[in-house]
Write a protein that binds this DNA or RNA. Structure first.
Lengths: 336, 336
DNA sequence: TTGTATGCGTTATCAT
DNA sequence: ATGATAACGCATACAA
């Protein structure tokens, strides 16, 4: 049976008020009292009950991080940094994965579940903007979006400039003389923001170079997984003329694509150059090492946690759109 | 201002008791009442306050998963499955990473922090058995250990048979004719259970084959990371005679080791065969694909969650030692 | 089957 | 600076 404030108060022969003050680090308490209380706390091995504290204050000290899949390297790297950044501000992080399930996303956001347990949500969504709009009416819990970027101003956002990032990747391939540049990750069937923006950057770069956009060269990928990359690349390699470069919308897609190229008896980068987005560590050790656009998960995490903390403290702060920097890393897979 | 039980009761013109019964799915409530209550709940958009419920019941419905680093593929795969398994039993999962920091581990376990927020802890420890012993006296929260296996009987454990797993990997290399088999991941300086057991299996397999154990061939690796694998392999390749195979204590070490072999101008598996443990997806797409011992994170997670749930329901259940199955997957990196 | 009343452990208001 | 006490929202013992 854990000790309570009352027990400590009785032991130290002071009021619970005083004990509470000591525990919460309140200033107006005499040194003699404090010592007496501290001694009692130590003797009884007292620890504040977080549930009671939460009931009283309305704060849990917990954030939720919602991602499609925690075991996707980009998201686990993000989680690592979010947990670290949150710890700095004395928040702890609960992780939930939606598994690409829209229904589950909605459930988590609307709190049909138990969302109230969190002070705020960091949400890396698959949902479209329209769905998000709809949800906003039902949820009132502080929310920061990661990786979307529609600039509609109603939500806090932290994300890179997806159009520019995609443009940079393709521009690099163009600069190296590639002219038949395919893309894996476009999802024409569903209007997600990220693939749309990256597709826009891809096409923009091609047009700037005076090249035509060949619809056959843009392949969908449902989950940005290695398997999706493998499948899509295999299809691309059967085209005539064959692409001489592939821009993958994620590094995981790129890993799958590279393996597909080898299995087809071709070489990366000699026959087909490949570049991805995310800059996961895996790509720095693969053979060949993977060119990629780096997203700085540490920056994204710090900003996101800072925003959510601000919004928790004041729900009416103006939403901010934070653009995280990105960096092109040229490695072996694109001839670097 | 969220609606409370009282509000719902007033609205439906019934007592809070009845509302509570309906919400908790209590059986003895007339259909007419139930409908009236349900309607009121809907109109007021009522949701139970988890903090109040926790304060009353002593249950939070939350588990903590403590791992060294969430962005290590094995741990993120484990986290994925733990979250899934926990959801089946209506538990949610908070993830904390110790970052190889013993002090942090102790803090989390002893609840110097806020551990009381969880109903139980799933703990993948770095600590030694001795430290764990010490901690047990201070913590009383249900605990299940993952990946340790000392069979001391005081804790619930879920882990593979590390000795056998290492033995299987090395036996495979021996069967393929390798005779100079090195190991990366032994940590002779610190008495962690996992590396000790894997080292034991490694040496045992060598001796059974009538080979000598060469201490130069066993290299330490602090974090089981790609970087550690790269460094250790680079050193191994400078030895004379050079190893003709390397058994890595994790797949991540193996990925680094493979890259080191290539950078040394050698071939995997022709010059040096490589095998790891964990069977992460990355190894199935790498070139060459990585032979590995698979750990079945789904099984481990299900068992661990089942155990912790049992212990939460009855703190006095007898501790169980659950041995998870492992499977050898031979792929290109060892000539498969 | 349903209503009333108490307490879970804290924080915060109001006195002193 | 400190003490007494009232909520916070829920679940349940006890009554009816």
């Amino acid at each position: 049976m854990p000790a309570t404030l009352r027990d400590v108060a009785a032991r130290a022969d002071v009021s619970v008020r005083t004990v509470s003050n000591v525990v919460s680090g309140y200033t107006h308490v005499s040194e003699r009292m404090r010592q007496r209380v501290l001694a009692a706390i130590d003797e009884l091995d007292y620890r504040p009950n977080p549930a009671a504290r939460t009931l009283r204050t309305g704060r849990t000290g917990m954030l939720a991080l919602i991602v499609p899949e925690i075991d996707v390297p980009y998201f686990s790297a993000l989680a690592r940094d979010v947990i670290t950044a949150a710890a700095e501000l004395d928040y702890r992080v609960m992780i939930d994965q939606t598994g690409h399930d829209h229904e589950r996303e909605r459930e988590l956001l609307t709190g049909d579940d138990r969302t109230m347990l969190f002070d705020g949500i960091l949400f890396s969504p698959l949902v479209t903007q329209a769905e998000l709009l709809e949800m906003d009416s039902t949820t009132r819990i502080p929310l920061v979006l990661l990786g979307e970027h529609q600039f509609d101003g109603r939500f806090d956002h932290v994300a890179i400039d997806n159009v520019q990032a995609a443009h940079d990747a393709v521009a690099h391939l163009l600069a190296r003389g590639h002219t038949r540049i395919a893309a894996i990750g476009a999802q024409p069937l569903e209007p997600y923001a990220t693939p749309q923006q990256r597709t826009a950057g891809y096409e923009q770069a091609l047009r700037e170079a005076g090249l035509e956009v060949d619809p056959d060269y843009a392949r969908a990928a449902a989950h940005y997984s290695r398997a999706d990359g493998y499948t899509a690349a295999t299809e691309l390699l059967r085209l005539d003329p064959r692409p001489d470069a592939i821009f993958c919308f994620s590094d995981l897609l790129a890993m799958g694509a590279m393996r597909a190229v080898f299995d087809a008896g071709l070489s990366v980068p000699d026959d087909v150059a490949i570049i991805g987005i995310d800059d996961i560590e895996e790509g720095r050790y693969s053979r060949p090492s993977l060119s990629s656009v780096s997203l700085d998960t540490a920056f994204i995490s710090e900003q996101a946690v800072a925003r959510i903390a601000a919004r928790i403290d004041d729900p009416d702060v103006e939403p901010e759109q934070i653009v995280a920097p990105h960096t092109l890393h040229v490695r072996e897979s694109s001839g670097g």
